[in-house]
Design a protein around this nucleic acid. Structure first.
Length: 443
RNA sequence: CGGGGCGUGGCUUAGUCUGGUAAAGCGCUCGGUUUGGGACCGAGAGAUCGUAGGUUCGAAUCCUACCGCCCCGACCA
């Protein structure tokens, strides 16, 4: 992408409504625009990040055997009356009527709808296990939206739903998602720790929140330093190997880890002081098993090997990609702007043409740009007629991981300057070698 | 929902207390000088001062109602 053609409205000053880093920087970098309280448009730069987050989530969900579908944002109230949640959900649910006075709602979640899809088509245990997921906008009419995307009213959510014959297989389904989440956050370049969470009326040990550590997180977290050394399951993970999955989950859920909401001082005190770590965290994922709550209410049954009807055991698994984008900024920024994990940076590298009206400089910058494209990278070429300082500031603000600067002085010596975002000073490199490196696809 | 605050060109704000016909910086347009980390000079465009009503000779300013946004609390992906 050429900066001269890219819609990226940067702000030099921070809009006054933004208090926290991610909100401030997303507005300043022209990633999002607020349209109403807790409701945002995604501008090109922000959408690039969001799409990269979604792509990684999607790959890992698919790897774990989940099927992507897409359910609508608007849902009929009738489904929710079946489960009893139409009355139980409260004011967070946005209720609307169409022209025929039919009751609809903007979905805050999709258990009812996915259960309806399941019961319409699946009737045998032989079709199980099944996991259906989608990435779709949700609306929850929060009393108090705040912190930009961190707590919006409309937000994107990847929500997956598992269906199994019994609790034992549902537990394996839960483990699959648990491991898929470990892989997902690792690939997103974020350090997420699974922490036990309140399981609600179902009880048991099958609910975890995935928490990203960031100084500006909403909740205080307590965890064992053992989490620092745990290895993330590789991409050759066998998602059909129930025992291996269970072992990984045990490794990742046995050491103490809890948010302030359910923190247990007595248990915490048994962790050796040298291995106690505390910090602040942002919840970016939440998984839980809820048994037959919806299948009972909505008649989602399958015939088992015993020839009898069984209510399916379900679980649901959420990640908020829009919140992940914000959390990544909370976890990675400095006074100059955003420092993205490279996996979700809006561009892989920035090429700054110091003097676009100097033919030699323009040509060298163009070559670098094409070499990067040929190498499979996604570069941003700043070819605008603008002072260099502004270009550098822009690259820092939007958090391009690597900057390559071409100017007349360096070019005389056949050199360019290279700087990594978030690291120290720039260094010089040979233009030719840089061209080769980019074309070869090395980052 | 309780408490607090704020709505003035695209952005950040001054002006409001003490009423007199809207100001500055940034951004934008044009011309010129510049150009190695957010340049400088000159000339411009751009505002029903959140909305409605009221008081007054006169309202951004005072009064009333409403709308919107932000922060703290309770609540939550």
């Amino acid at each position: 992408m050429r900066a001269s053609r890219f819609f990226m409205p940067l702000l030099k000053e921070t809009p006054k409504e933004a208090e926290i880093a991610s909100h401030r920087l997303m507005l300043r970098a022209g990633m999002i625009r607020q349209q109403a309280a807790g409701i945002y448009s995604w501008l090109p730069l922000g959408l690039r990040v969001l799409n990269k987050v979604n792509a990684i989530i999607r790959e890992e969900m698919n790897r774990a055997g989940a099927n992507e579908i897409l359910m609508p944002t608007l849902q009929s109230a009738d489904l929710w009356r079946e489960s009893g949640r139409y009355d139980a959900y409260g004011k967070e649910m946005l209720r609307i009527q169409d022209r025929h006075k039919r009751d609809l709602l903007y979905g805050p979640t999709n258990e009812e709808m996915v259960t309806d899809i399941f019961r319409s088509y699946v009737s045998s245990y032989k079709s199980l296990p099944l996991n259906l997921y989608h990435i779709q906008w949700k609306f929850r009419d929060e009393v108090r939206p705040r912190f930009g995307l961190m707590r919006g009213r409309e937000f994107l959510m990847k929500d997956a739903y598992s269906f199994d014959l019994d609790e034992a297989s549902a537990r394996t389904a839960y483990h699959r998602m648990f491991v898929a989440y470990l892989r997902t956050f690792e690939r997103l370049g974020l350090r997420a720790i699974p922490m036990r969470a309140d399981t609600g009326p179902i009880g048991g040990d099958l609910s975890h929140e995935f928490i990203i550590l960031a100084d500006t997180g909403e909740s205080e977290v307590f965890f064992h330093t053992d989490y620092n050394g745990l290895e993330t399951p590789g991409e050759n993970t066998d998602f059909d190997d129930a025992d291996a999955l269970a072992k990984t989950v045990a490794d990742w859920s046995t050491p103490y880890a809890a948010t302030d909401e359910i923190h247990d001082e007595a248990e915490w005190s048994r962790v050796p002081a040298a291995q106690q770590a505390t910090g602040r965290g942002i919840e970016v994922g939440h998984i839980f098993y809820f048994g037959t709550k919806y299948s009972d209410a909505m008649g989602a049954n399958v015939t088992g090997p015993d020839g009898k009807e069984h209510s399916v055991h379900m679980g649901s698994y959420g990640i908020g990609p829009s919140r992940v984008a914000a959390a990544a900024i909370e976890a990675g920024h400095d006074e100059n702007g955003i420092i993205w994990p490279s996996a979700i940076a809006p561009f892989d590298l920035g090429i700054i043409s110091m003097k676009p009206d100097d033919a030699a400089v323009a040509e060298a910058a163009e070559k670098l740009y094409r070499a990067a494209l040929a190498g499979g990278q996604d570069p941003l070429l700043d070819d605008r007629d603008m002072r260099a300082g502004q270009k550098f500031a822009a690259m820092d603000l939007v958090g391009v991981p690597e900057q390559i600067t071409v100017g007349p002085r360096g070019l005389e010596k056949g050199e360019v300057e290279v700087k990594k975002r978030g690291e120290g000073d720039k260094s010089t490199a040979s233009l030719d070698e840089t061209l080769n490196r980019l074309a070869a696809g090395a980052n």
